[in-house]
Design a protein around this nucleic acid. Structure first.
Lengths: 334, 334
DNA sequence: CTGTTAGCGCATTCAA
DNA sequence: TTGAATGCGCTAACAG
């Protein structure tokens, strides 16, 4: 059960290996019509498939890119992955998806393994815990694009949401409806995860712009496992919030769970808006207002930026941070 | 900016390439303590990383497997992918995930590209449209495991849900509560997608076992885009159903959407149960009963079966169909 | 214990 | 137009 190689094809077609190679690379001008047909025929007969690994070794290009997400449990991650895969497929690339699970160790491990596998580039949702490695990648000229999160002092093209604006949208729509005590909940910010920090910043900024007080007690960033506890604290305040902004889909689910458990009414007891679109938003009772990220556009942009680097079209200015705008899906939950 | 190779390490450490190679493969018994240290040191100094592509070419093993899902839009797919990735990561394998989008053409394209990339094996959610290719893969001894769906006349190890039993669970719980006119909706079965067909079979069988009539009008398998229409037809029957079994998560979402639009009450106007767990089941009003698939166990099983093949431990009997049991999550929607 | 050698399958000069 | 030769980076006999 031996693998058939270019040599077998050459022998059967009675030409040389290099001619077959030319054929495979569609350089038909280097051969006669007849030999072309002959090669075509024997390839079919032998059911020959070129060995991409061998080609990659020679050409130093694997047509594979690594995608490392910080945490695949967010629908945002899976949506982006889907869109990225779709994009790359059209360009003839494959992606290897890895889930760092919010652990810098795991992220490092993945990056190193994929570098050893000679992937042509990376799209990373950085955990933020491996700045030295990121720098080393840049030094080695490895194409790299960040997604969703910025890392301070790194000059790497980054595609992310305009988080400040997303928060502003949420606050504004709540204020417009007359809510006065607006709370925001994100998951943990211990490692300075930029979207979370920025969403809180944007929230504060928006409140200030509306001349409303920023109440520290209304800002919660618990660990996922303490989410329920944190929400409980909110409702035990003397002046509990009348509206909650859920910083992402997992928080939103936690909030809705709490609300169900405690038999609260949306929006009378508490108004709710979530950042990130969720499957049930449109048929929940009441329907849930959300702020959605333009995942497809973000993926497109990231893929474009990475391909530019891979193809050495690294124009100047290609290292900026691209912040795309979120959109408000106004429904009944406030 | 030249890549450093094993030769560079050898030169700097003043040993031969093969000794370095031995070191890399942890065959320390073939060298002295001092040379080992020396190699270790220079590898660190040079920041050397072995080129996996070159190794793969030689060893005919890429430590990469292809995972091709029929349609990534099902939560089931993403859950399985997550679990598979996690499993393989522990074994030192990477996975390349591809989305066939229910198109056999795309599936074929992916399989061929990944074969060319010399992946060590495949886990496929088969579209069913490429039986010849599947056979060819077997002929070429390419490790292969099917997931979620069986393909007739193929002797390939397959991991899937016990769909008959899943339907029976749904019907039984509905019957127990006194529902008489039970409907089932799946997405299209034009290409004989086995889980859908089996879920309908199981539904019929269960009804018969309970001595209840099987009403053809209560069985719908529309295209996703005609889902709403099909649900509408159900309610326009003279004797509309009093309960709906949603064949998967997308159908469930469609059903709940319809129910919301038409302001129906669950379970008074219509009882609902879905196959596949959904994020909102526990805090929807009412909470939604579901039948969930043991995704982690299924993934484990599939990975195990594939690794057995890859490691040539293909015992007899390893070609069967493994059907895992679903579990009922009994909540308030019936 | 260590070094030499010969490929893995393909692409690419450079001659013919 | 075609073919022979060389090397990509690594592994694996086989000698020494």
């Amino acid at each position: 059960m031996k693998n058939i190689t270019i040599a077998d094809v050459a022998r059967h077609a009675e030409v040389s290996k290099s001619t077959v190679s030319q054929y495979l690379n569609k350089r038909y001008e280097y051969m006669s019509e007849t030999t072309r047909k002959k090669i075509e025929k024997t390839i079919k007969e032998l059911n020959y498939r070129p060995n991409v690994v061998a080609r990659s070794l020679k050409q130093k290009s694997t047509f594979t890119v690594g995608v490392i997400v910080a945490n695949i449990l967010h629908t945002f991650s899976t949506q982006i992955i889907r869109a990225i895969e779709n994009n790359f497929h059209q360009k003839g690339f494959h992606i290897i998806v890895c889930n760092a699970d919010d652990e810098p160790e795991k992220e490092r491990n993945y990056i190193e393994m994929l570098m050893a596998k000679q992937v042509d580039g990376f799209i990373i949702f950085p955990t933020g815990g491996n700045v030295d490695l990121y720098k080393e990648m840049i030094n080695q000229n490895i194409p790299l694009v960040f997604m969703d999160r910025t890392i301070d002092e790194m000059d790497i093209p980054t595609v992310m949401l305009d988080n400040m604006d997303a928060s502003r949208l949420a606050v504004q729509s709540l204020v417009d409806k007359g809510y006065k005590r607006i709370s925001i909940i994100t998951t943990s910010i211990i490692r300075n995860i930029s979207p979370r920090v920025e969403r809180i910043q944007g929230y504060k900024k928006a409140l200030e712009d509306f001349q409303m007080p920023v109440v520290p007690d209304y800002i919660k960033s618990p660990d996922v496992k303490n989410l329920n506890l944190a929400i409980g604290e909110l409702f035990q305040l003397n002046a509990p919030p009348d509206a909650i902004i859920a910083g992402n889909d997992r928080v939103l689910i936690g909030v809705l769970n709490y609300i169900k458990e405690h038999d609260l009414k949306i929006p009378d007891d508490i108004a709710v808006i979530g950042i990130d679109e969720v499957s049930f938003a449109g048929f929940f009772t009441p329907t849930i207002s959300t702020i959605s990220q333009p995942t497809v556009e973000m993926a497109n942009q990231a893929v474009k930026l990475l391909l530019n680097q891979i193809n050495q079209e690294v124009d100047l200015g290609e290292t900026g941070v691209y912040r795309l705008k979120a959109t408000l899906n106004s429904r009944e939950s406030y």
